[in-house]
Design a protein around this nucleic acid. Structure first.
Lengths: 364, 364
DNA sequence: TTGAAAGCGCTAACAT
DNA sequence: ATGTTAGCGCTTTCAA
């Protein structure tokens, strides 16, 4: 089907090792005439070395594993995009991708497969609290870079960590709300406590405490995500907005777990007749481009995605997993506040609404 | 590092071929005692066969290539998600993904790499008019399934095609606008004529002609996408909205190339003080979940993504590329109109606007 | 019922 | 300066 190194050797009238030598750039002490013959043989046969065979021999494959919660969340799409183009351009690596919906079993299965495919480097975007399966992958020769969670303090880890400063991001978002005069504020999250989520909650509380708002700050848990994982987080936001509308002393300022949640909240609030930002203000986190397109446009804390992704890829390309990740590790990437339209001063008086549901007609 | 089939053989006290036999289920004429020994050896060593070596031997690898224009467009994220989960569940295949930004060179390079990695099946979401590079991949042993473009009529092709009925979709969207009373209508697209785009334009024109609106229907080209490809299509929509606002006899009804473009249009129209749907109506195509969350929510033609993706994967898993794709091929998957808020009757009189630009403040 | 052996396409000593 | 050769980890006839 495809030509092999043998064919090239035959056509060029040389041995396979000579061909292999030119393939691998060991052409210094080679007669230029020989080099030419090999080169032209390669050209005429349109020969492409099998990465497969190369890999079986060398033990290395130019493939990078990428584990994402869900490609349905544009944030992860963006991240995947950045990782892919950087890994490709700088290292000539391709991406083997897997969605895990933050399910431990899926993560394990995926890593298992990577190992079987000879892939030795993986970027894990997940933030499951328990990282033992990642540690075990390192034992088996993987270089693992994990996003969105820090190394457990005081615990040595050979997993590399790159992460946004979630604490600072949430604090920044919350302070922005407070600066506009909000007092009854809430952090809206989903079920399941990942490290990044708890860091955000801490940041939210810190900002509230700082302003003496401890008793007025609350955490709203929108419940579990279904099998689709993060993709439906906007739906959780929408449903939560309905709940919020029905609250007696409803919060006037909402800090959303992330932008997609915020977009869901805004949609849900609108459905129940509450205006953003006149009745309720909303801040997001992430800084996806859709935040700038929503109506009202979403104020958010924008994370430096390209920088973080590059840092991850660079680490993944290290020859070895770090011996102890606790030192060089904790570089927190901080976000910046992008002020748009979704935040304003709180209303003087709470508007009454009767909860209703939107309807959607379908025609053929 | 990892244990090999040799290790298992040694521990079990059998030959490698026996181990290989149990690996491949040829255990019928095997003494159950032997089988047990092998099994327990596998278990204690935590042995995992190297897909790599298997592949070098068999020529097959459980990897599916996926070429997308850009993971930044949620539509492609959704498609990738469906493909991945179906390929994984039904065939135990993993995904090797590549973004090409609809660039021919990138497509070729990616396919080249797939071949080198021994990957024999690829799904191409691209709709570049020229498919020769795909044909050539078939020659070299690839099973290629292409989305979003039909086989060239009258031309034999060994590339399999799965596609939405873009013509019908655009026609449906356009008719919806016309049914609300719109006469000055426009189809908003980007530079670069792919097959799917021209099919949509044809559908748009068909609906217009049918209603005797030929002279009032126009095509608006928002210009080229930058290196980011489809991800920034919303930006093109936004910019185009500004242009539209400045038109003398501006259209009252807009059919967007896809939902992301529609979302950009809505955002842009709002920026220049035009209300959707009071001043201008907008219909999208695709049916991404964000369409239901926008404000106003977007009326659109929803495509049956899961069905189409499953059809693609199933075709990609065929043993051989079809000899002639023109027969079984042209199954058009049709979309359904989802009516939401972005379409209403046209305004009685055109509202004057002075074009302004939104501003965005940034703080640290 | 099990084992021996020949590769799959390449790389890298080691020879020459 | 180039060729010989021994594998990498597996599958699969073919023998025993």
């Amino acid at each position: 089907m495809t030509s092999t190194i043998q064919d090239v050797a035959r056509v060029a009238g040389v041995s396979v090792s000579t061909v292999s030598n030119v393939l691998n750039g060991r052409t210094d002490r080679m007669r230029s005439e020989t080099l030419d013959r090999v080169k032209s043989a390669i050209a005429t046969l349109e020969y492409r070395p099998s990465k497969l065979a190369q890999q079986l021999k060398t033990g290395h494959t130019p493939l990078l594993g990428l584990l994402v919660p869900s490609l349905t969340n544009p944030m992860y799409g963006h991240m995947a995009r950045e990782i892919e183009s950087y890994a490709q351009q700088k290292y000539e690596y391709r991406l083997l991708i897997g969605s895990t919906y933050r399910d431990r079993t899926q993560e394990i299965a995926f890593i298992e497969d990577l190992l079987a495919h000879g892939v030795r480097r993986v970027i894990v975007i997940s933030s499951l609290a328990d990282e033992r399966h990642l540690e075990s992958a390192v034992e088996r020769g993987m270089v693992v870079v994990s996003y969105d969670r820090g190394a457990t303090p005081g615990k040595r880890s050979r997993v590399s960590h790159v992460m946004p400063d979630n604490y600072a991001a949430a604090r920044l978002a919350t302070s922005h709300l407070i600066a506009q005069g909000h007092q009854r504020i809430a952090f809206v999250t989903v079920a399941g406590m990942t490290m990044s989520r708890s860091a955000k909650i801490d940041g939210f509380h810190a900002a509230a405490d700082e302003a003496g708002l401890r008793d007025l700050a609350q955490i709203l848990d929108g419940g579990a995500l279904d099998e689709y994982g993060d993709g439906v987080i906007a739906e959780v936001g929408r449903a939560t907005a309905h709940r919020i509308a029905a609250m007696a002393d409803r919060p006037t300022g909402l800090v959303a777990l992330n932008d997609l949640m915020a977009i869901g909240l805004i949609a849900g609030l609108r459905e129940v007749g509450l205006q953003v930002p006149q009745d309720v203000s909303v801040v997001g986190m992430d800084g996806i481009y859709l935040a700038g397109l929503s109506n009202p446009s979403l104020s958010t804390v924008q994370l430096p995605v390209p920088e973080m992704m590059r840092a991850m890829v660079d680490r993944a390309m290290q020859a070895e997993a770090p011996l102890d990740a606790s030192s060089s590790d904790q570089v927190l990437h901080s976000g910046r506040l992008v002020v748009r339209e979704s935040v304003a001063a709180p209303p003087v008086q709470q508007r009454q609404v009767h909860v209703q549901t939107s309807q959607e007609k379908t025609a053929s």
